[in-house]
Computed example of a mutant assay.
Amino acid sequence: MNATETFRIVVGVDGSPESLRALEWAVAEARLRHGQVHVVTAWQHPAMVADDEDLDWDLTGYEARARFLQAEALRSAHAAPEDITGEVVQGQPAAVLIEASAEADLLIVGSHGYGGFTGLLLGSVSNQVVHHARCPVLVVRSRRPGRL
């Protein structure tokens, strides 16, 4: 990034409290850097039983749900419309975010912590993006009572 380019932050949002916290962090960071936030929401078809021909899956519902979750997140982002954009992409979440990281200066994701010892571990998506993203990655943990 040079002095004339805008700092671009990509943030993964799936509607979870952790991803919404990541979005809050992204908007705050963009304000500090006079940058832009690009919200990416991934969706994928559920695993299906291949030999059950009687199943009538409404697969467009998954994309519609992803678009709804992203629209709600964008409304709650408290960012100027010119500073935030969104994209809904079909695919495995980690792969979609890794691809989006190619056009980013920073990738932010939320971590679905489990508390206790397992809370020290990264979730599968955050683990994959930390190891394979094409830019620096910030993993935002959820707020815990009594902590900032």
Rank of each mutant, 00 (worst) to 15 (best):
A71N: 03
L148K: 03
E5F: 01
A64P: 13
Q128S: 08
H38A: 07
A66H: 11
P81K: 02
H112P: 06
A77W: 13
A42W: 00
W25P: 06
E29V: 00
Y114N: 12
Q128K: 12
V137W: 13
L120F: 10
G86P: 03
D54G: 10
E72D: 09
T118Y: 03
R141G: 05
L122Q: 04
A42Q: 04
D52L: 01
S19H: 00
V139G: 14
L106W: 08
E53Y: 08
D83P: 01
R65N: 14
G61L: 00
V49K: 07
I98T: 14
P93G: 11
Q36Y: 07
H38N: 13
S126H: 12
R75N: 15
V96A: 12
E99W: 01
T6F: 08
C135H: 09
G61I: 00
A79V: 02
D52R: 00
G91S: 12
T4F: 15
L55G: 11
W25T: 09
I108D: 02
S124C: 05
C135S: 03
G86M: 06
Q92G: 04
E87Q: 09
L107T: 03
A22N: 02
E29M: 02
G35Y: 04
D58C: 03
T4M: 15
V125D: 07
V39S: 10
V11Y: 15
V40P: 15
E82M: 13
R147Y: 06
R141L: 11
V49D: 12
W43Y: 15
A77V: 00
Q128R: 12
A22H: 01
V125T: 09
